[in-house]
Simulated scan of single mutants.
Amino acid sequence: MKKILFVTMIALIVAVLAACGSDNEETGEASGAEQETITFGVTPWTSTVPPTKIAGLILKDMGYEVVETSADAGSVYTGLSRGDLDVFMDAWLPMHDNYINKYEDNLDLTAVSYPEADTGWTVPTYMEDVNSLEDLKGREDEFGNEFYGIESGAGASIESDEILKAYEFDMEQINSSEGGMLAQAQKMMADEEPVVFYGWRPHTMFNKFDLKVLTNEQGFFETSSVEVVTNTELKENAPEAYEFLSNWNISLDDVEEMIVKIEEGGDPEEVAQEWIDNNQDKVDEMLGK
């Protein structure tokens, strides 16, 4: 009788263990399950939108769910480092080196979107005798002792503060959103007043106004490489998505053209889909087909 009870107990234990193993498989808890949702960090810059929308549409076609999370640059990099975000399509290097260096153990420089993007302190071309940062020294009062920048904490704003200190300019950086900065600059340019603000390409400001980026002798605002950054877990958790993103590239002119269409009222996803439809060979190349 004891022998029968012992055998029965063993059989029950084996059955329970088998059921647990089966449950793990059915609920997707087995190791090696691939990540199904890709989360993009989206900064409040017009240059971020077209690449994010294009990449998102392609990833959706690949079977992934796509989520966009809006945040300032610092929060995007923090999110990437924590694994809360997977991808940022608009990293400006070396301008964002402070974030890259801070979180280097958790970030992957995955691809270069376009290698030569002009950026820096910008003035309208009617200011013919102002062509470099050095030309501003001693003339700060002509500009109301103000430089107009984008949001505080952005790499460009941090570097602009360094410029103010390095040149000992008697100026204050006025930070606001991209739209707020440009509205102020546009207002002053309408009356051909002296104004200096942060400018970059790709952006419609260079299509709408006659502008020039100021040179400098101290190496500020080097020509930027705009890159795709992912968190280090994506390569293992979603290898197909990572492989596509590692092949990513797009021209600065294409991004700028899409920004213009969006600012003129075009739906961002429709503009992105139009680019995909017109560049299927390039898309196939990025997908490794």
Rank of each mutant, 00 (worst) to 15 (best):
K3R: 08
I4A: 01
V7F: 11
T8A: 07
I10K: 00
A11P: 00
I13G: 00
V14R: 00
C20M: 12
G21I: 04
N24W: 13
E25K: 13
E26G: 10
A33L: 10
E34D: 03
Q35W: 09
Q35A: 12
G41N: 12
W45M: 11
V49C: 04
I58P: 07
K60H: 07
K60N: 08
D61V: 03
E65F: 11
V66Q: 04
E68N: 12
S70Q: 09
S70T: 13
A71K: 15
G74F: 02
G74R: 09
V76A: 11
V76K: 05
Y77N: 12
G79V: 09
D86M: 14
V87K: 15
D97M: 07
Y99D: 06
I100D: 03
I100G: 02
N101Q: 07
N106S: 15
N106F: 13
D108P: 07
L109I: 14
T119N: 07
W121F: 03
V123F: 02
V123N: 01
M127F: 02
D129L: 09
S132Q: 10
L133F: 09
G138E: 02
E140Y: 02
D141V: 13
D141M: 12
E151P: 05
E151F: 11
I158E: 13
I158D: 02
D161I: 00
E168I: 08
D170A: 10
E172R: 08
E172K: 14
Q173N: 08
Q173V: 14
N175I: 03
E178T: 15
G180H: 09
G180W: 03
G180F: 13
L182P: 01
Q184G: 06
Q184M: 12
M188P: 00
P194Q: 05
F197Q: 03
Y198M: 06
R201D: 05
F206K: 06
L211S: 01
K212A: 08
N216S: 13
E217H: 07
F221L: 13
S225L: 03
T230P: 15
N231W: 13
N231L: 14
L234C: 14
K235G: 05
P239N: 02
E240H: 02
Y242H: 09
E243R: 04
E243A: 12
F244R: 01
L245T: 08
S251N: 03
K261Y: 00
I262S: 02
E263L: 04
G265Q: 08
E269Y: 11
E270F: 03
E274W: 09
D277A: 10
Q280S: 01
K282D: 06
D284T: 06
